[in-house]
Design a protein around this nucleic acid. Sequence first.
DNA 1: CTCTGTGCAAAGCGTTTGCAAACGA
DNA 2: TCGTTTGCAAACGCTTTGCACAGAG
Lengths: 133, 133
Amino acid sequence: MNNYTTILRAHGLKVTPQRLAISDAIGTHGHIKIEDLYTLMLKEFSSISLATIYKNINVMVQNSFIQEVKIPHTKSVYELTKEAHSHLVCSECTEVEDISLDIYDFINKADSQTSFLIQKADVVFSGICKKCQ
Amino acid sequence: MNNYTTILRAHGLKVTPQRLAISDAIGTHGHIKIEDLYTLMLKEFSSISLATIYKNINVMVQNSFIQEVKIPHTKSVYELTKEAHSHLVCSECTEVEDISLDIYDFINKADSQTSFLIQKADVVFSGICKKCQ
DNA sequence: CTCTGTGCAAAGCGTTTGCAAACGA
DNA sequence: TCGTTTGCAAACGCTTTGCACAGAG
């Protein structure tokens, strides 16, 4: 019984080889674009359809198994849902990394400055990654 | 001589009635989606083309006259370029508001935790706006 | 056995492109 | 006048849909 079998079921998703492979690819890569995911999947399932990728990404997002990360000037990437965290993106190579930062103070500061009831903050830091420096 | 005539020229953009109207709409609304901008423009130029909207939005973004703001779970909005600031979005009505927060400490903290050279942070707070509470 | 997921082909939708005419400087 | 912008129509790319068959539970 694979790693993701239980998690998929816990999210109300039937377990199929395609879903296991998609989960594994996202888990392994951390952050992945649709087109890269498709390329990866083709190596494992030579006749997998892009429609299957999209249908699964959509249902997985709906069931909170994965999440979309919107990034300035680039395509969205998908990641497994995990504890709240922020993102770093390299403006050269568009590589994405996670970063754990305490943002409660930040959210409170924002909350005290507006009439909105603030629930969360999506933060994307842009910079140059080690490799590209 | 309209408000935006000078600013458009300063950004190297020829002044046309369509560009003035687009600038004015973005300035007045603060944040606007392409489709809403098109609807607004149609009232003023009954035969304006969506292609004109897109061409202008693209050249205006390239020349840093305006900026795209990517927002989780919704379509992007465009705003006039101004001093760095963060955004609030209402998860009910998707209304977008600006908020000025000092993020230097935040950026420094992030910078010290990673090997990236961090240059900026795009922050989108999500919550419930006054009207929707 | 029943319901859901898959793959394929077609449709859909937002965005871009090419072109001739109109316009800005 | 010359180069740019506009509007239109066609093309494009990404995403979704409908359907028949295969597979999960």
